[in-house]
């Protein structure tokens, strides 16, 4: 299945690896912050409501 990359295999594979890692990193960071902020906001909102 793996295509024959010839003598440039290193270059092609490493650029795919680097790019995918970076894309995964920004997606993961965004998701993590999204979840964290959402939860914190919900906590605070419920606290504010209970205060009246």
């Amino acid at each position: 299945m793996m295509p024959d990359l010839g003598k440039y295999a290193d270059a092609v594979l490493s650029s795919y690896a680097v790019s995918l890692v970076l894309l995964a990193l920004i997606v993961w960071l965004s998701l993590r912050r999204s979840k964290r902020i959402k939860k914190e906001l919900e906590d605070i909102e419920s606290k504010v409501k209970s205060h009246g």
Partner: peptide, 23 residues
């Protein structure tokens, strides 16, 4: 997709800071 999600996060973070300040 990333910008939508991150903007939503920023809006919530901003609201949170506002609520905390009011508290």
């Amino acid at each position: 997709a990333l910008v939508l999600m991150r903007t939503r996060t920023e809006i919530r973070a901003r609201r949170m800071r506002a609520l905390l300040a009011r508290e």
